[in-house]
């Protein structure tokens, strides 16, 4: 399973891929996390990739991904051609306008107001990535929630643990409603 997170620096893109990778390792799976970002610490294009497997991982930088999580329009436009046909696309619906003409065949498309929820419900746009993480993992069931929580707790700034976990649980609930529909 190859998952790509894209967005701007400052949205927690690299952290999201790190947390998924770390959770997979905690689950006893193999994982590789990889990233690319500009020299700016905030605002530049940013991507975080994670590969999860039960077997040895040979491909270090796969060209195509199974899942694309996009938090910005340029990120979506640049990387959507690399989503595998039949793959899964998750976007922040207030930040990304999708265009079917650009998309590979038979993909599953999900659009959620992650940043809006983070802002309105928690007063912190910066935790939109946690909403996304919870949502994505509930849809795809890649890592156990036990490990995911552990990885979040270990890697978010001290004092923000509850905030981040609550945001993640909000994403989980959203995905449960989605699948109930």
């Amino acid at each position: 399973m190859i998952i790509r997170f894209v967005g701007f620096g400052g949205q927690g893109i690299v952290l999201s891929s790190y947390i998924i990778g770390k959770s997979a390792v905690l689950d006893g799976k193999r994982a590789i996390q990889n990233q690319s970002y500009g020299s700016e610490s905030r605002g530049g294009e940013c991507r975080g990739d994670v590969i999860i497997s039960d077997e040895e991982i040979y491909e270090l930088e796969p060209v195509n991904q199974d899942v694309l999580v996009a938090l910005t329009q340029p990120g979506y436009e640049k990387f959507i051609p690399h989503l595998k046909p039949g793959g899964t696309l998750i976007v922040d619906k207030d930040l990304v306008i999708t265009d079917e003409k650009m998309e590979p065949e038979n993909i599953a498309r999900y659009a959620i107001p992650a940043t809006d929820i983070a802002h309105k419900k928690f007063g912190r746009k910066i935790i939109a990535n946690m909403v996304m993480l919870g949502y994505m993992n509930t849809l795809l069931n890649q890592v156990t929630f036990e490990s995911l929580e552990k990885a979040v707790l270990e890697n978010v700034p001290k004092g923000t643990e509850k905030l981040n976990l609550d945001a993640m649980r909000e994403g989980i609930e959203l995905a449960k409603q989605e699948s109930a529909r």
Binding site: G21, I32, Q33, N34, L60
Partner: peptide, 9 residues
């Protein structure tokens, strides 16, 4: 740089 910059267990 590839091995230096990937995260693994």
């Amino acid at each position: 740089g590839e091995i230096g910059h990937i995260r693994e267990s």
